[in-house]
Computed example of a mutant assay.
Amino acid sequence: MLTIKVEKSGGDYSVIQEAIDAVPYDESAVIEIGAGVYKEKIFCEKKDITFVGSGMAETVIDYDDYANEVMPDGSKRGTFRTYTAFFGGKKVTVKDMTIRNSAGDGRVVGQAVAVYADADVCRFENVKMTGCQDTLFCAPLPVAARQQNGFMGPRMMTERRLTKQYYKNCEIVGDVDFIFGGADAVFDDCVITCNDRMFGRSSAGVSASSTTIASGASGSGVDKDQIDVSERIINGYVTAACGLKDNLGFVFRNCTITGASGCEKGSVFLGRPWREEARTVFLNCTMDDSIAPERFSGWGGITKDEPNTFYGEFGTRIATGIGAEGSNTASEAPNSGAEAGKPASLEHKNPWVRDIDESLATEITRRADELVQGVNGDGSL
């Protein structure tokens, strides 16, 4: 197996993309990335490659492409060409680093992907992925786009194939639909944080223009993402799945899901369906009171009926000491003294959201464990 070292100085390479390009497709390789901020847009399409950083706080890959950027031909870049890191091929493992898209507020720049995970088998451990709208894309794409060239990017013309993805001890930060796609993906012991989009409040981090857009510049109360904020503040949606009904979908286990400090109570939804058969469940997770009482939203309206989805929770508990009402930031959870308190109430959930019973939770866990074992093994799923 090849081992290649990337360092700001003294390594085999100083540029990550050059190290990737040096690996023959059929050769297994480990690319060790030293401390520092690497301002790069990387593309990896290899058979079996592992990226190992020097730590979540030490190794940072950063880029700032965004969907509303006008390209030389006059078209917009669109969502799927904005990635900071694209991971394709057969198998990819990523450990001990941060990957971010620093383009900024989606109300101004549109979608901005940090990680485009598209390998047949993907494993991420101790990785922080951070952005605003559409931080993490768990491929594949839906079969068809809703608008012409809506999927412009590296997989627009390819046949869709189901990927298997595992996220362990990761931190994922964003706001609108920031974990999205059609993969079967299991998230274990992750910290998921929705940004505070600061509706009606000034901040050095948000421009006056984005505040105007957020409040509905035309007076309609609908921002550019068609999120109605005229009657209620919505900071974001954690997931936007598009998998098929017989697939596993997104499974979150023993994760901490919160709004960042300052997020309004009830302003964060656990998800909305990018396609009508979306599947997302949360098992034995800890959440704060920024999570909306309806739990999941419909696509195009909070209470829109979504009978074909498979959305639900089991064993959710409400945390104290983190998120909207606490003094700690969500990124410090769950090891900052925050404690899971009483069970979450699903009394006001949308009627198509499931209050999963123990038997069903056990079955979902079995399927999730099978995926994890395959990803952690030889990748033969």
Rank of each mutant, 00 (worst) to 15 (best):
Met1Cys: 06
Leu2Ser: 07
Thr3Ser: 08
Val6Trp: 10
Asp21Cys: 00
Ala22Asn: 05
Ala22Pro: 00
Ser28Thr: 03
Glu32Thr: 03
Gly34His: 05
Val37Ser: 11
Ile42Glu: 08
Glu45Tyr: 11
Lys47Ser: 13
Thr50Leu: 12
Phe51Ser: 07
Val52Gln: 11
Val52Gly: 04
Asp64His: 15
Glu69Gln: 15
Thr79Trp: 10
Phe80Glu: 00
Gly88Ser: 13
Gly89Trp: 09
Asp105Ile: 05
Gly110Phe: 15
Val113Ile: 15
Ala114Leu: 10
Ala114Tyr: 14
Asp120Met: 11
Phe124Glu: 03
Met129Val: 13
Ala139Glu: 14
Ala139Leu: 12
Leu141Gln: 03
Leu141Ile: 01
Val143Pro: 00
Val143Glu: 13
Met152Ile: 01
Arg160Ser: 05
Arg161Glu: 13
Leu162Val: 04
Tyr166Phe: 15
Asn169Asp: 15
Val173Met: 05
Ile179Leu: 11
Gly181Cys: 01
Gly181Trp: 01
Gly182Glu: 02
Cys194Pro: 02
Arg197Thr: 11
Ser210His: 01
Ser210Pro: 00
Thr211Glu: 15
Thr212Ser: 07
Val222Ile: 14
Val222Leu: 09
Asp228Asn: 15
Val229Gln: 06
Ile233Leu: 03
Gly236Ser: 01
Gly236Asp: 02
Val238Ser: 05
Ala241Gly: 06
Gly243Asp: 08
Leu248Gly: 10
Gly249Asn: 03
Gly249Asp: 04
Val251Phe: 10
Thr256Tyr: 08
Ala260Trp: 12
Gly262Trp: 14
Gly266Ala: 07
Gly271Trp: 01
Pro273Gln: 08
Val281Tyr: 13
Val281Ser: 10
Thr286Tyr: 07
Ser290Val: 02
Ala292Phe: 06
Ser297Lys: 04
Gly298Lys: 09
Trp299Val: 04
Thr303Cys: 09
Glu306Arg: 13
Thr309Glu: 06
Glu313Gln: 09
Phe314Thr: 07
Phe314Leu: 04
Ile322His: 08
Gly326Pro: 11
Ser331Leu: 15
Glu332Met: 15
Gly337Ser: 14
Lys342Trp: 08
Ala344Leu: 13
Leu346Met: 05
Ile356His: 08
Leu360Gly: 00
Leu360Tyr: 12
Thr362His: 06
Ile364Gln: 09
Arg366Lys: 14
Val372Trp: 05
Gly374His: 07
Val375Gly: 05
Asn376Leu: 15
Leu381Ile: 02
